[in-house]
């Protein structure tokens, strides 16, 4: 009998192999299209809208987004199985926000587990509790952003308040196998020692959480905004210096967390 979950369809915009920084080992990252947040610094602006769109890149027009079945994605993911086995790697769902395509994402994660492949997700955590509960059994590692503790500031810079995110973090911490908290360090938004300290304190308070990653702001995505004909709201803000990152990492460590810069 055909495995019906393999026929589930979803919308992705990229698959990247040999990624070594989003979860353990060598991983294949599947980028799902569509996100509920609009973070000003987002380095994948083409991921935000669920609609298939055009982006100009290196003088060429590229179509962003395509509808695929779980079977198609799985075939691509399985190609690197020899490297997952040797490195403890696997699949990482990224986006966009995978929680917004639960049927597709969960079918894909299940199919990976069927093949003994480790699963991870990079998520904003912005979804209904019931949706998150459906995901939890199929994910070996949650990499979840906590961007700010202050809800108003969170809303100002990402378009959404943070209450639901913080509640979901607690839920995931209680029920999931493993949760690592990630913080994009954005100048002018959350890059003070106090703000990082607040986030670290929150992370530490979560059940079983002992690791935090600080991801310094970078301008990788800037050209994409131009390609999408959208303004780049971050302007010429320079990335945090490594000295400053060192300071912040020590703040995070002072809360008793294992902390590192980058994924």
């Amino acid at each position: 009998m055909a495995d019906s979950k393999l026929l589930t369809r979803g919308r992705i915009f990229d698959i990247q192999r040999f990624s070594t920084h989003d979860g353990p080992g060598i991983r294949t990252i599947v980028f799902l299209k569509g996100c509920a947040l609009r973070c000003r610094w987002c380095c994948n602006p083409e991921s935000q809208s669920y609609n298939i769109e055009q982006m100009k890149q290196n003088e060429k027009i590229k179509t962003i987004g395509k509808d695929v079945t779980v079977a198609e994605v799985l075939e691509e993911v399985l190609r690197d199985a020899p490297y997952y086995r040797r490195s403890g790697g696997g699949i990482t769902l990224s986006g966009g926000e995978s929680l917004l395509q639960p049927d597709f994402a969960i079918s894909l994660l299940k199919a990976c587990h069927d093949h003994g492949i480790n699963t991870a997700i990079e998520t904003t955590g912005f979804a209904e509790q019931s949706v998150i509960e459906r995901f939890i059994p199929h994910i070996d590692l949650f990499l979840m952003d906590i961007k700010h503790i202050n809800s108003a500031k969170h809303a100002e810079f990402t378009g959404q308040p943070n209450e639901r995110i913080l509640e979901n973090a607690a839920l995931i911490a209680r029920q999931a196998k493993r949760l690592i908290v990630r913080v994009p360090v954005i100048p002018g938004f959350n890059d003070t020692e106090t703000e990082i300290s607040d986030i670290a304190a929150f992370a530490k308070s979560l059940n079983g959480v002992n690791e935090i990653h600080l991801l310094p702001y970078h301008r990788m995505g800037r050209d994409k905004y131009e390609g999408l004909n959208r303004p780049y709201l971050m302007g010429d803000v320079p990335p945090p210096t490594s000295e400053h990152m060192e300071k912040l990492i020590n703040v995070a460590r002072s809360h008793g967390l294992t902390a590192k810069i980058g994924g």
């Binding site: 920084h21 310094p216 301008r219 990788m220 050209d223 990335p239 810069i261």
Partner: peptide, 18 residues
């Protein structure tokens, strides 16, 4: 392959400025 801020990428796919 090059490593860019926290991850690796194919060099020629990056923008000139990067």
């Amino acid at each position: 392959v090059v490593r860019v801020a926290g991850y690796s990428a194919l060099f020629t796919t990056l923008s000139r400025s990067l």
